[in-house]
């Protein structure tokens, strides 16, 4: 994913992209992150420890609001 693919307001690191505008702060991704890399801050999800993240995809799988997802790997088809 290139920088220009990221919309204003989206937060990304090298592992996940978070769209705070869609996040409703339910905390599901935080609770079921196996490595506890996520937290809620001001009712929005944030990644607090990028190094812990294994890109297992559990957050993306269970986010009801499609507000957190894995960064596409380099060889993955762009949307």
């Amino acid at each position: 994913m290139k920088m220009e693919d990221i919309k204003a307001g989206e937060i990304q690191n090298e592992k996940v992209v978070i769209n705070p505008a869609w996040c409703k702060g339910c905390g599901i991704c935080v609770a079921f992150c196996p490595v506890k890399a996520l937290e809620l801050k001001n009712d929005k999800v944030v990644m607090v420890d990028v190094d812990k993240c294994t890109q297992c995809g559990m957050c993306e799988l269970r986010c009801p609001d499609y507000a957190i997802y894995l960064r596409r790997k380099k060889n993955e088809k762009q949307g």
Binding site: K24, G25, C26, G27, I28, C63, P64, D65, Y66
Partner: peptide, 10 residues
């Protein structure tokens, strides 16, 4: 917030 419907739809 927290409704499971979005997860199932995905």
């Amino acid at each position: 917030p927290g409704c499971g419907h979005g997860i199932i739809t995905r």
